[in-house]
Design a protein around this nucleic acid. Structure first.
Lengths: 236, 236
DNA sequence: CGCTCATTGTATGCTGCCTCACAGACTTCG
DNA sequence: CGAAGTCTGTGAGGCAGCATACAATGAGCG
């Protein structure tokens, strides 16, 4: 049996599948490796498959006509992406690009549909996935609409801390390499503004900056600077 | 058999159910009527049910701490709402409020869960619903992030035209009563700004304003003012 | 190891949009 | 039918954040 199987097992969604089902699934999907910074799919691509990230990290986003980039989400190993193709649209609306060297599993639309039809539990899992992601994005929308750039940035940092924060001496380090431009693309701001605001926050002793690296030294003061409860520390 | 049944039939999601299933469902849900402008549920409410709008119109939204209102969506008859409660959260995150006198069907969480378990097709329908709404909101987010107030407003008007536009002499009338404040709450702007921009658009001959009423007199010029393809005219 | 490119830091106008303040017109409901 | 509340219109003032322009530093790669 192929070693690839562990990729599938790693995905929450497929936990409930039996050994033989997993094996069958495994024979029906392809594995591709991508170097850092390469597109997995583009907005013009045919949306005929669902993807599962085995290793690495992927970002989902889109470009406006004027070339501005919006980052909608980051995908971690074990997560499914490109799943809106299940709705039966022909074309992708966004692009997916590797942020690091990544391994991706391609599951064709038909195979996935079949899987859903045969396994109600998996179908339920997909529904929940959709729901969770929708809630996440609704929250983001609500927050972005009526807050200043500074508030949005701090909010984002706290979110990142939840997901990627690791306690180190002197604070919580964000274990995800993001440039100021990336941060700006998430909150809908500009690179310069992000640089300035981060500088201010550092001057205020709330965090420490490194190259593509941020350490939150005082989460409590960060949080109360936007009047929000301190989030629990996630990560390893 | 109760006349209420037609409410259920009207919902796409329940099309596939058999007569007896519909009848059973009907006995298990409650019907409530709300006058115009009353809350159906609030953010603090227990999220233990799903709702189906039979008649009227409902808006979904939320408030920021400072009292700013965000409108996330409008719900039309036959549409399901409050469906994120299916994810098993305890509390609502948003509020729902009637925009017009409305009739709402309450389906308790357990009943709905049972329904999904028994009818894979319905479950699939819910998945698609989630997916579609998520896509819609992702589009909105992308658009809002990097466009001016004027562009956002025009974009919104065009969207509304797709959904609520009716051809009348002299243009396309939006058959949904929205105040400038409402529009502002959708695009994340202020009432005054919306008033001014609408005034400009009227002066430019792109639309005509009435009290809580807008007629788009020149959709093509509206659309190209934000460089977008003209949407098809929906409605009756 | 040196070259090139990506990333970060800083300054300076400019302006879109928000805030605040007020007035007139229409609605709705007692 | 009159009064109170809602909706629309308009103006002044101020500031956050964008566009633009440049410089320096570290990273990655041949």
């Amino acid at each position: 049996m192929s070693e690839r199987l562990w990729y599938l097992k790693r995905c929450d969604l497929f936990q409930r599948l039996g050994q033989e089902q997993l094996a069958t699934l495994e024979t029906r999907c392809r594995v591709r490796k991508f170097p850092r910074g390469t597109p997995v799919y583009l907005p013009s691509d045919l949306a005929d498959s669902v993807l599962l990230l085995a290793e690495g990290r992927v970002k989902i986003g889109s470009f406006t006509e004027e070339g501005k980039q919006t980052i909608l989400a980051f995908i971690e190993p074990g997560e499914l992406f490109g799943e809106l193709s299940l709705l039966g649209s022909e074309q992708r609306e966004e692009y997916a690009e590797t942020v690091e060297k990544s391994t991706v599993i391609l599951i064709s639309g038909e195979v996935m549909q079949q899987l859903l039809a045969d396994n109600p539990e998996v179908a339920l899992g997909v529904t929940k996935l959709f729901g969770l992601r929708r809630r996440r994005i609704e929250r983001r929308l609500k927050y972005l609409l009526f807050h200043s750039n500074r508030e949005r940035l701090v909010h984002l940092l706290l979110e990142l801390a939840e997901q990627y924060g690791h306690a180190v001496e002197g604070g919580v380090e964000l274990r995800i390499k993001l440039s100021h431009q990336d941060l700006a693309n998430v909150i809908g701001s500009t690179r310069e503004t992000v640089t300035v605001v981060l500088g201010e926050l550092q001057a205020e002793g709330r965090l420490k900056l490194g190259r593509r690296k941020i350490v939150l030294t005082d989460i409590a003061r960060l949080a109360d600077s936007i009047s929000v409860a301190v989030p629990p520390l996630g990560g390893a």
